[in-house]
Nucleic acid binder design. Structure first.
Length: 306
DNA sequence: AGCGGTCAAGTTGAT
DNA sequence: ATCAACTTGACCGCT
């Protein structure tokens, strides 16, 4: 049975009429500052309400975790149009709705996470990249505090031809985060550069949990079995462990390996995870339909297909 | 209403 | 050299 597994939905819906809005900086730059803030306030207000709807849907559907889009507060840390919520005309209402999301989370036991996107690179050799990355993480930590999210998951960054030096730089960047943000950061193995074996020593040293992405591990293996990587990842967590699962678009042979399928092939669900009490975020293009189908597939048979 | 061009940001690897 | 991929298409301006 999979009753102890909490499945997570990532950011979006395909069937539910729940939409998150955003804006482009190019468009906003044509407006006055007050017009910019008015527009951003409208988007932030809509998104805070959409987030509450997303939480309510997940809870009702038996989906145990929701990943919040980085653009929940659009362009929050943009160098020109960026803003603080208190500047927004409806800032107080926006914050109140986020805090209502937090109360819903606490009441229901739903979990929430954030995943800053590819532009957040704490180990970049370029100071301006690190600076913008720190700002983006601190913004997401603020949102996390309002809504009670307990994970801000990032990748270690680039390799730059010397992974040892690059991971040392990661530590420098991490040290510059606030204590609150440090307590939320997790590291995920990627499909290009950093394997679980690369990251586990760093995770242990910094007390940062490893988000074990089994798809990335299958694409970029390191000699660790799935069982070994799972067993090593679990003790890095001081809260419920969180893993990632997806299926390749075009099967495990040939190209297209890196791309995500609409749904999850239940055979890709590791048997090693079956009896764990963990969160598994489902990365699939069919979104809530894929999460619900996977839960159905795994419970119908009482066991993952193998 | 529909459609095409465009969108803040980094890094890697396939073509 | 260009560009798609990444957690994800959405928005704007034109017809």
């Amino acid at each position: 049975m999979t009753s102890k597994i909490r499945f997570g939905l990532c950011c979006l819906f395909v069937e539910q009429p729940i939409k998150f809005r955003t804006a482009t900086a190019t468009h906003l730059l044509k407006k006055s500052r007050s017009e910019q803030l008015e527009k951003l306030s409208e988007l932030a207000g809509d998104n805070s309400k959409a987030l509450l709807a997303a939480f309510k849907y997940c809870h009702a559907a038996g989906i145990g975790c929701f990943r919040i889009n980085s653009q929940i507060l659009p362009l929050k840390t943009h160098p020109v149009v960026g803003y603080s919520v208190s500047e927004l005309p409806d800032g107080a209402a926006v914050m109140a709705t986020f805090k209502e999301c937090g109360r819903f989370l606490k009441k229901t036991g739903l979990r929430a996470s954030l995943h800053p996107d590819q532009f957040v690179v704490l180990n970049s050799p370029r100071p301006e990249v690190v600076a913008s990355s720190l700002a983006e993480i601190e913004y997401q930590a603020e949102v996390a505090e309002w809504v009670g999210a307990d994970v801000i998951n990032i990748h270690a960054g680039g390799g730059y031809g010397d992974k040892t030096a690059a991971l040392a730089r990661f530590k420098d960047g991490f040290a510059r985060l606030s204590a609150a943000a440090q307590g939320l950061i997790t590291l995920e193995n990627d499909d290009k550069t950093y394997t679980p074996a690369d990251l586990l020593p760093l995770c242990r040293e910094l007390d940062v949990p490893l988000v074990y992405d089994v798809h990335h591990h299958r694409v970029l293996p390191d000699g660790l079995s799935i069982a070994a990587a799972t067993a090593a990842a679990l003790p890095t967590w001081n809260r419920e462990p969180l893993f990632h699962l997806s299926s390749p678009l075009t099967g495990w042979k040939g190209s297209g390996l890196h791309r995500h399928h609409d749904y999850i092939d239940p055979a890709d669900f590791p048997v090693e995870w079956r009896d764990l009490r963990v969160t598994v975020e489902v990365e699939a293009k069919a979104k809530e339909l894929a999460v619900k189908k996977l839960m159905r597939d795994l419970s119908d048979s009482g066991r993952p297909v193998s």
